[in-house]
């Protein structure tokens, strides 16, 4: 029996609840005859994957990227552009997307990581804005109207198809779990310790002989590539991609999910994405002016709990103590 007085146990319980909710959402949706929630949760998990990747650099690495939605766009546009030229093989699309994400993250990372603090925030935003305006200006791929993807990626097997919402859902679910596991391993590896140490005191790490720039760049690239995967999946849920996916407000929303869930906590991004999506869905039902509620809600979360929902868990303990 887990004792809820222990923070680690509380985290475990929350983790099991959140993962369980994602795992069982389609079953529940069908039982309750609310099939709409299958795709809603699929979207939410895609954002969670993107948020997990952002948490790597933002939460653990202290690199506040305000342009992370760029990689969602790269993934989604790769699928869109390949489908536009009738190349529907998933694996070709995926490899191309990962390579594109890798190259862009490498180039942009080496530019951005020269700066610190708010300068870093602004330069990541600026670079994403440039690609955003680029995507708007390319008429061949629909400019700002976006690109319809008529055929979803083909997995090359009859057993699983992205056209089946349940299959699609569990592919996304498994990818999310894989990303979660990967980031857990990464953070607890030697690499992860260097990244985290560099966040708190970079000079010390440099004195100790660690090439922190290279470590941070590697982390930046890993996060970019992981987010590209989310973009690939997004294209397969939406069957559509438009520059809107790279708008700076999308990057902002990703940050909010991470901060809401609790930075540098393993389950934070998923919890954040879950709460963010379900609450906005819930508030929007109440009134068209739902921002009147959502805005003060965000402020309250920040004021009451400095470390998001994860921080709430810790907060409760100290209240009990």
């Amino acid at each position: 029996m887990l004792s809820l007085d222990n923070l680690q146990n509380r985290r475990k319980v929350l983790g099991v609840l959140v993962i369980g909710l994602c795992a069982l959402a389609p079953v529940a949706a069908n039982l309750l005859d609310e099939p709409y929630y299958i795709n809603l949760f699929a979207r939410l998990m895609i954002w969670a994957i993107a948020a997990i990747s952002l948490n790597l650099i933002l939460g653990y690495g202290g690199m506040i990227s305000f342009g992370h939605s760029l990689y969602l766009g790269i993934g989604a546009y790769t699928v869109g552009i390949f489908a536009y030229y009738d190349i529907n093989n998933f694996y070709i699309q995926l490899v191309a997307a990962l390579m594109a994400g890798f190259c862009v993250a490498l180039v942009f990372g080496s530019i951005c990581l020269r700066t610190r603090g708010v300068y870093f925030i602004m330069i990541t935003m600026a670079l994403t804005q440039m690609i955003y305006f680029l995507s708007i200006s390319i008429e061949e791929f629909g400019s700002d109207d976006g690109l319809i993807i008529y055929v979803r990626s083909e997995l090359g097997t009859d057993l699983i198809s992205f056209d089946n919402p349940i299959h699609r859902y569990y592919v996304i679910f498994l990818v999310m779990i894989a990303c979660l596991y990967f980031s857990h391993r990464l953070i607890h590896s030697r690499f992860g310790y260097v990244i985290r140490a560099a966040k708190s005191n970079e000079t010390r790490m440099e004195v100790l002989g660690y090439p922190t720039f290279r470590y941070r760049l590697a982390c930046f690239v890993i996060a970019g590539v992981m987010c590209t995967v989310a973009g690939v999946l997004s294209a397969n849920v939406e069957k559509f991609v438009s520059p809107d996916i790279m708008h700076w407000t999308r990057s902002g929303e990703l940050i909010f999910m991470v901060v809401l869930g609790g930075m540098a906590s393993m389950m934070g991004p998923i919890t954040g994405a879950l709460v963010f999506w379900l609450l906005s869905e819930f508030f929007a039902r109440i009134t068209e002016h739902w921002h009147l509620i959502f805005g003060p809600f965000l402020i309250l979360v920040v004021l009451l709990s400095p470390r998001g929902i994860d921080g709430l868990l810790a907060l409760k303990r100290s209240a009990n103590d």
Binding site: V118, F256, G295, P306
Partner: peptide
Amino acid sequence: RTLYQRHHLDQVLATFGLILFFNELVQV
């Protein structure tokens, strides 16, 4: 006032909340 000593991201989140609120308020 309570945010001065806090992480930049907390400030971003809270002030974004203010934006949402006031943008909606002027629409009302």
